[in-house]
Design a protein around this nucleic acid. Sequence first.
DNA 1: ACCTAAACCTGGGCGC
DNA 2: TGCGCCCAGGTTTAGG
Length: 263
Amino acid sequence: MPELPEVETIRREIAPFVKGKIISGLEIKDPRNIKGISPALLEKKLAGKKILGVDRRAKYLVFPLSPAGFLVVHLGMTGRLLFAPDPYLKVTFVFKGGEKLYFSDARLFGKIRYFDADPPLDLGPEPFSKEFTAQKFGEMLAKKKTSIKLVLLDQKILSGVGNIYANEALFRAGILPKRRADDLSETEVKKLHKAILDVLEEAIEKRGTSDSWYVDASGKKGSFQERLQVYGRKGEPCFKCKTPIERISLGQRGTYFCPKCQK
DNA sequence: ACCTAAACCTGGGCGC
DNA sequence: TGCGCCCAGGTTTAGG
C-alpha cells in the first residue's frame, strides 16, 4: 500500500512529466474515486489549468494549479498514477498536446479531489520536517494512552507512516506494538524517532515496498519488500534471533513483531 | 474529548 | 477446474 516512500517515489517520477502541462480534459471510466465534487464539475474546474508542480503532503499528492485551484490525489491502498493504463483504470488526465496520466485503483479506496484554495488536510508533522524532533515526538506520545502502533498510524500525530513502516520501525526500535505510547522511556522515544526516519529514508532509496499492489508510475516494483524484517512474516524466523515472528490484530490491522527482540 | 470499531471496496489466495 | 470464503487496510464516519 502506498505510504510516504511510495508516494514520494511517484511524486519524483511524475513531477518532471506534469510540471507546466495544461490539462485539457478528463476521460472518466469509473467516477467512484472522485469525491466531494461531481465528475462534470471536476473536469470544468481542471480544464485549461496549468500544473505548477507536484507536492507531497504525507500520503497525498497535491497539484497546485494556475491560475488557481488544487488537484489532490490519495492512492488509498491500490491506487496508481501511471504513464500507461492498466486493467484497473478509472480516470485519465489528458493534457494539451495529447499526453496522458492514468489513475487506476482496483479497490476504490483512492480519492481524487479538487479545492479552490489550499487544501485543509488536517495532518500532523511530516517525518522529515524540522518540527518532527525526538523531543516533540515524546511530548505527543506522552498524551496518548493507546498502543504505540496505533499512534504511529494516526496521521494527526505523525503523517505519512502506514502499516508496513509502523511495524518495521517498531521492530528496529525494539518496542512491542501494544506498548502504551505514554509508557515509553526517553531512550525508547529517541530510538523510535530515529527508526522511523531511517526506515522511511531507506524505503525511499529502494523506491518503496511492492509487497502486493504498489508499482511506480512506470509500472515498476520497488524493492524494499526484500528488506522487511517483520511485516508479512508471521511464523517465519526473526532475522536476529530466529524466534518466529508473531502476528496480532491492533486496530483491525495486521501487526507483526518479534516477541523476543521487542520489549 | 477521547477511543474503538464498522464501513467503504474488490482482486487474489486459499480450501474444498 | 471452479466455486465460495476471507483477507488486505487508509481514511471517514458512527457509536460508545
